[in-house]
Simulated scan of single mutants.
Amino acid sequence: MKVSGIFAVILTITLFSCHQKEEKKPVITDLLTDDFDYTKDAVFDSLNVPQHLRKIVKDISSLNIYETEQGGKGATDTPANFRNFKKLYKAASEQELLALTDNKNSVLAVYASIGLSEKDNQYTIPVFQKMLNRRGTVHIQNGCILSNDHPAEPVYWAQYYKLKPEELNSDQDLKQLDSMILFMPESSELILTTALRNRIFSDGLKKQIAKQAFENHRQPALKYLNSWHKKEYADLLQKELANLY
């Protein structure tokens, strides 16, 4: 009986030890792969997509990330979805691109908006407004920088980087986009800072900037008012800035 009891204890310990050895701790590369798997929330919307565009639309939607021409560190090839965008740009007509700006996949809608604006800049403001009205964010990779931003942001940057530095203040399309940025929900610090840096806004828009500063507590708006309207907003600025430090 004693031998049987000892054997039972040894067997229990052995089984427990084997179980422990079989358990694998999370590997950091697995975690990173999981974090950067943008296909998990991909949306496929082929309704009203012409037959000759369906494969390109599927390819863009499958990757589900907005990629610029700049690859990540060590990349030798142009990012896959930027190549898909170029295929879409060549294959789709203006009307087909316009229809795709309403696609349920936001990455595809963003690429369609940029392509349409590049084909004819009369669409720049309308498609930007469309993207402003969309909810949620898009996965973005620009070189080594990964982010999740509002769908309107890539459309803005596409217009911004088409211009020479000396054109940033005078370009009428960018001027209107900058004004629209002031009303953009949850805009990134970078895009709001850029819009406010480009120009001095009218008194009508000054009220919206004040709303961003004192109701939404946005630092770029605070800095703008502190630079250009310090006397008018002295008390509010003093109170808000005191809360920052």
Rank of each mutant, 00 (worst) to 15 (best):
G74F: 08
S113M: 07
E153P: 01
F16L: 13
F183Y: 15
Q208C: 03
E23G: 01
L98F: 11
S4Y: 14
V138P: 03
L236V: 01
D41W: 00
T193V: 01
K58G: 02
K40E: 02
Q70I: 09
D35L: 09
R135W: 06
P79F: 03
S227H: 12
I56V: 11
Y38D: 01
S187C: 11
E23S: 04
T76V: 08
P154G: 03
D171Y: 00
V127L: 07
T194K: 14
E166C: 00
K164E: 10
S61F: 08
E189S: 10
A8V: 03
G115H: 08
Y161R: 05
G136A: 07
F201T: 08
I6T: 13
S61I: 04
I28G: 01
I60L: 14
I114A: 10
K211L: 05
P151G: 01
S62L: 11
E153C: 04
S113Q: 12
T39I: 05
K207M: 10
S202A: 13
T101C: 05
K230N: 12
H52Y: 13
A109Y: 09
K86W: 01
E23D: 06
L47S: 14
A152Y: 13
N169Q: 12
S61T: 06
I200N: 12
S62C: 04
Q172L: 07
A8Y: 02
K104E: 10
L146D: 01
P26L: 07
K25P: 00
I125Y: 01
Q122W: 12
T33L: 09
S202D: 15
L31D: 07
S46F: 15
Q20H: 04
V3H: 15
Q238Y: 14
T33F: 11
D171T: 00
S93Y: 01
R83V: 13
A234Y: 14
Q159A: 07
F183H: 10
H217P: 03
F16R: 11
N169S: 09
V57N: 04
L241D: 03
Y123A: 07
I13T: 14
Q95A: 08
L11G: 06
I10V: 14
Q70P: 04
L225D: 05
Y224L: 06
V49G: 04
T124C: 08
M131Q: 15
A152M: 11
G136F: 09
K206S: 07
K40I: 05
P26I: 01
T33H: 14
I140Q: 07
V57R: 00
F82E: 01
Q122H: 15
A234G: 05
